[in-house]
Amino acid sequence: MAARLHDEIRRLPGIEECALLSTCNRIELYTVGTGDAPVGCEVGVLAALHQVEPEFVARHAEVSHGLAAIEHLFEVATGLDSQMVGEAEILGQVKASYAEALERRATGPVLNRVFQKAFQAAAWARTHTSIGRGEVSIGNVAVELARRIFGELSESRVLVLGTGEVGEKTVRAFVSRGATDITVASRTFANAHRLAASFGGAAIELADALRFAGKYDIVVGSASAPEPLLTLPGVRAALAARRGDPLFLIDLGLPRNFEPALSELEGAFLYNLDDLSAIANENLRARMAEVDKARDGLAERARRVWSATGVS
């Protein structure tokens, strides 16, 4: 679709440059025109492409011109406009979109400069403000904690008890950060097998998993169980088998999958959903506190880029 859109937009009279940014929750079109192009002509192309009425697109579209458009791109690239403020993935998506537009020769001197400056502005904001500091999703917070205990996750063994949604997301975060040795256990073996197969892990029976919990470094509980799956005697035995190596327990279940008293055991680090949420929220608050500072710096940079374009 991006290829067609680039071609269609460039065919519009008066449009000289364009770049399309398309992510899971936004479609943004950056264009540079000679002034002859009718305002909002891009809307018609978007509507035709998606086979909807132009009025429908116009009703939902936000249009910015000149300096405001540059400021917007800078904020998008920095993650200020993301649902999860300060997230870094968006910068990669902006870079990929720009690379595609460049490959299609859809950009020109103005957009090239504006996009390059947007990347620099995003880097500035990450270095000079705390906009990207700390993890803000449950899964990433758990991964970060695991790293502080074990270091590289490629050498850690992860056991997942249950196939709950939060647990699945958390395991995906572990996999995306380098964990390779993942085992899933569930009361319904077929469910465990299905989840394990989705990221190349192994599936075992729940009873076996509980018996051999000490062989794993990280145990994620996301089962719906009326009673705790991991209890004090079981984890004490697991820790003894680990010969002093720490054990990271992540309890994402409600009711709790692990006995709260496990946190008192030497060598066991127990975090439940509330603990992880509290850390994520704290990090998010810290990021929000930096938004104004980042926005001011980005606006200043956008003004400089806008003046350099020489467009009044």
């Binding site: 904690l145 790293r147 502080r148 205990i149 074990f150 270091g151 720490p246 975090y271 509290a278 850390i279």
Partner: peptide, 14 residues
């Protein structure tokens, strides 16, 4: 359960 800045700059426990 409140790993702050210091924890982030220190090496892992293991």
């Amino acid at each position: 359960r409140r790993p702050g800045f210091m924890s982030a700059v220190l090496p892992p426990l293991r």
